[in-house]
């Protein structure tokens, strides 16, 4: 079987992204199957991430796979000084595929080079988190009916936000217009703006966040402005409330506009918005299940055709 690790969404073409979205659609129709019966999925979380781990393990379980692994690095030999390579080689003897989260950047790329089984990156430090990107893309596709020619507004911490950087990378195939809305200290880094210019992606930068700005959006992607990111706490106090989304700011929003958030949310989206038809962040999290089912199957060499003709669906 061909080894098909997933390290970063940047490795994927437009066609591949669309293919994975079609796969996720199939899983949304029928999430419960015995497609991975007899397979063992290892989830190695060298850094805790309950949300991502539960989503991957649910994806594996609903496809009939068995799951092994650890949720807390304190129980592994890494703390005894074992190298990542040794851990990966050992687990490769037991599992058909490894889902891994690591606090070091590039860990998944390295693991994919040494492991005889496919690796799925569930986040490597501040670097990449392709399954989050995939579920974001699936959510955009589902709510807008397309990925092409959309106005995507990214709000909050655009400097350290891994999800917003991956979004630029993945969306560059689809002729988007980006709007970057952030305090100066957390503005989109120059290297990503250069990426946009290199790929002829239009972008507009704002420091204001209000109903008029929001009125141009198809997707409003919220992220959290974290106190610990600021070197100047006075500056934090000045801007912290400027990037909170309040119900009255949606008064001029386009009817198709949806609010996404990678979660966890703290206070950046007012709770009264949860009931509003523009709110989509909880459904977005559910889409993560279908997106991850698609990523697991693709990494294991299962094709869209096989999924469409699957006889193992559990009704």
């Amino acid at each position: 079987m061909e080894k098909r690790s997933l390290v970063t969404i940047a490795d994927h073409s437009r066609e591949k992204i669309e293919y994975l979205i079609q796969m996720a659609q199939e899983f949304e129709k029928h999430p419960n199957r015995r497609l991975l019966e007899g397979k063992v999925v290892a989830t190695l979380f060298f850094e805790p991430s309950t949300r991502t781990r539960l989503s991957f393990e649910t994806a594996a379980n609903r496809l009939g796979a068995r799951v092994i692994g650890f949720a807390d690095p304190k129980v592994t030999s890494g703390t005894k000084g074992e190298t990542l390579k040794d851990t990966i080689m050992m687990v490769s003897n037991y599992a058909d595929i490894i889902v891994m989260r690591h606090y070091l950047e590039g860990a998944a790329r390295y693991a994919s080079e040494i492991a005889p089984v496919p690796i799925v990156n569930a986040g490597d430090g501040a670097n990449q988190h392709p399954s989050q990107t995939m579920l974001d893309l699936y959510s955009i596709y589902k709510t807008q009916g397309r990925l092409d020619d959309l106005d995507i507004f990214l709000v909050g911490d655009l400097k350290y936000g891994r999800t917003v950087h991956s979004m630029l990378n993945a969306m560059h195939h689809f002729n988007p217009t980006f709007h970057f809305i952030a305090p100066e200290e957390l503005a989109m880094p120059e290297i990503y703006k250069q990426f946009c210019r290199d790929h002829s992606i239009r972008y507009v930068e704002h420091t204001d966040f209000n109903a008029d700005v929001i009125s141009g959006a198809d997707i409003l992607y919220m992220t959290r402005v974290q106190r610990e990111r600021f070197t100047d706490l006075m500056e934090y106090e000045r801007v912290k409330d400027r990037y909170l989304l309040k119900l009255d700011m949606l008064s001029k929003a386009r009817p198709n506009m949806k609010i996404l958030h990678p979660l966890p949310r703290v206070n950046e989206i007012e709770y009264s918005i949860d009931e509003n038809p523009h709110a989509y962040y909880f459904e977005q999290a559910r889409n993560g299940l279908y997106a991850r089912q698609a990523l697991l199957c693709d990494a294991l060499g299962i094709t869209l055709d096989e999924i469409r003709n699957d006889k193992t669906i559990i009704e």
């Binding site: 990542l84 950047e105 670097n127």
Partner: peptide
């Protein structure tokens, strides 16, 4: 990862003027 694991570093030459390097891993 290359600073935390016994392994080789790996860089690609980067940029239009080839005056930068990009880490293959991070």
């Amino acid at each position: 990862i290359t600073n935390n694991e016994p392994m080789q570093t790996h860089f690609h030459v980067h940029g239009p003027d080839r005056r930068a390097l990009k880490c293959h891993y991070c």
